[in-house]
Design a protein around this nucleic acid. Sequence first.
DNA 1: TCATAACCGAGACGGTACGTCTCGTCTTGGG
DNA 2: CCCAAGACGAGACGTACCGTCTCGGTTATGA
Lengths: 209, 209, 209, 209
Amino acid sequence: MLFLERIISLTFISDPATGRRRNAVSHDAILDATYVMLEEIGFDKLSLEGVAARAGVGKATIYRWWPNKSALVMEALLRAVEPMPAIGDSGSARGDLEEHIARLSQLLRGKSGRVVREMIALAQFDDDTMRIFNDSYLGPRRAALVAVLKRGALAGEFRSDLDLNLVFDLLYAPLLQRLLTGSADFEERQVKAQLDLVLGSISPTPALQ
Amino acid sequence: MLFLERIISLTFISDPATGRRRNAVSHDAILDATYVMLEEIGFDKLSLEGVAARAGVGKATIYRWWPNKSALVMEALLRAVEPMPAIGDSGSARGDLEEHIARLSQLLRGKSGRVVREMIALAQFDDDTMRIFNDSYLGPRRAALVAVLKRGALAGEFRSDLDLNLVFDLLYAPLLQRLLTGSADFEERQVKAQLDLVLGSISPTPALQ
Amino acid sequence: MLFLERIISLTFISDPATGRRRNAVSHDAILDATYVMLEEIGFDKLSLEGVAARAGVGKATIYRWWPNKSALVMEALLRAVEPMPAIGDSGSARGDLEEHIARLSQLLRGKSGRVVREMIALAQFDDDTMRIFNDSYLGPRRAALVAVLKRGALAGEFRSDLDLNLVFDLLYAPLLQRLLTGSADFEERQVKAQLDLVLGSISPTPALQ
Amino acid sequence: MLFLERIISLTFISDPATGRRRNAVSHDAILDATYVMLEEIGFDKLSLEGVAARAGVGKATIYRWWPNKSALVMEALLRAVEPMPAIGDSGSARGDLEEHIARLSQLLRGKSGRVVREMIALAQFDDDTMRIFNDSYLGPRRAALVAVLKRGALAGEFRSDLDLNLVFDLLYAPLLQRLLTGSADFEERQVKAQLDLVLGSISPTPALQ
DNA sequence: TCATAACCGAGACGGTACGTCTCGTCTTGGG
DNA sequence: CCCAAGACGAGACGTACCGTCTCGGTTATGA
């Protein structure tokens, strides 16, 4: 069927491997400029015109690679979020969770907090952006925590009849809610209290405990 | 909407007793136009120019009464959000909570869900908007639920050593998180499971712990 | 039929006499800026963006009142052409023509020459612009000359069987052709020779002359 | 089109004996694409980007061989303009002139008319283009007509004291003027009348004058 | 009852940014 | 060394809105 392939290949106007290659320097300059301008003037006042000027780049180069402002900003923010704190395996699933949540609440108190707030807000107005946020931010964190919960359940530390995604929500959502409603104080004491409540409710035989 | 009247009254700088009175018809037309256009094209693409045209109103009339787009949109949204489901007093605080949360999850599944999502998103970029959202939406709901929790604690239904605001977070935040991360399925079963976990953890029995 | 008029008037969305009036200062500033920039950088490199900046005016204000660059430039040029030299009535139609053509050839040697060249060039690419040029520049000149020719014909100075528009062409076209082909020397002697030829051919009884 | 070859050869900067030779297919494709797009969308909206795409050619290839849009367009137009109608020698110079002018006015009524209009317009904004137009279009026609006039003068058909270039202007300019002012009707009768006037004025008889 | 003060619709205005288009240059990889 | 493809910095295009500013006209007191 060689000749057929030749015919088909002729219908491809251009070979994707042809032409000048994408410039990685410009790509980085754009994301960097986006991030610093976000910090300086905020999302609302951020203009792609300004980003292009700051990055020393033509506007078309931005539009070539990102479909809209939200997508660009989301990518810039994702580069700026601290990477997910790895969850250790100390033997105690409860201890691992406590440590992870404590570290998370600390991160959200800082630069990452602002970034996550903005990512979530952006995602409300654009489905693609929402998908990127879920895939790149929330998803991995949910997966990691659920893995620990599963480990704990198997080890008998937690009840085995739990909807682990629900437990994840109970652990994460109060932090996000405080972040998103301006009361992002995240006192260590308060986070500890929350954890005690949740972990208490998922311990194996609460009545006897 | 008492607080809104307060805001409006602040815009009267000169002697309010003289001159033509504010045109209530225009005022309503503006908010109505804002809301239907929000539904049609979303917040991003909403322009005050468009609202003015749709409402049959001069642009200046909008700028006379609202300081910016967020404020206008927030007021339009607040008119559209269902009023807080009143919390009854059936004798059982737990029953009252269950009924309230069930009704809430139902509302969030509908038009109110989209509205709340957008209000929260807007609030991330503007402190005034955040304040209005907290004062007029989240605050009253928090107060009402905390009152029920307090009633339940006094009646011995719940533990008496609880941070009730924290309990409120555990009840509300998972719903909001699902709303804000696109997984707003709110299956009744799931909401029930969440409630069981939380209420289980605050019931007095495991006080032996 | 008063009520009918009332109904009809309701179908007019807006009264043309309503709203803020056009700003004459801006209008003039735009035409002035257009003209000086034309002289500085030429038609090709002239941008409405630049004109707006130079005139201290928003781009929209230009687009509100002129459909395209050619129309704007044509209007700016028309303001800059010297007004048509009035044709006197010395008693001798031939003398009047000679004086007019001499003055015209002098004008075309100067600023007006450049302006007319450009107007004609612009008109080749846009029918509206062509119409404006004919109505505002060539038409009046043609009418005036034809009137003199008619006067001369009635007075017996010229043959009476002539297509006067054709005679106008023979008088004007050679000047324009030289203007448009870069050989705009317009030596007085040459213009005189041309006039002699043409006027000779339209004198009443050439054979006896 | 000898002069064109001269221009092209000038663009060979490097040693013509080394490296790959110019691709004649691309060269023709470019000029063809230029011409058909000129007909479709006109000079103003013609982009080299579009020509390259239409010709299946890289933009650089165009820039390699033509210095600017005007030069490219002028070459494309010159390929399209009918070659100068050769002037016969019937024995009567007057007859030869009449036949040539009649054929010219016919050509200008057709496709060539539009082409000449555009060439003249382009030439107003670029000296190189003007030079090319004069050298390759107007010059040869002027030379040929002047030769016929000289022949006629020697044969006693025309006066011998004439500035023949001036007579050329009187023959050609009215046609061009009508072409350039949108009144390109060129009625045969009108052209005939013009010719009668001009030829009458240069016939030897009125030398008594 | 009428003057006055504020409101109102319309829409022009100086601006800013949009997203697209084209310019002329510059890599690429393949003749 | 040529060529098609196409990315790139630059910057103008024509449009959409911003928030402000006349306009002429309309209410509704309060003098």
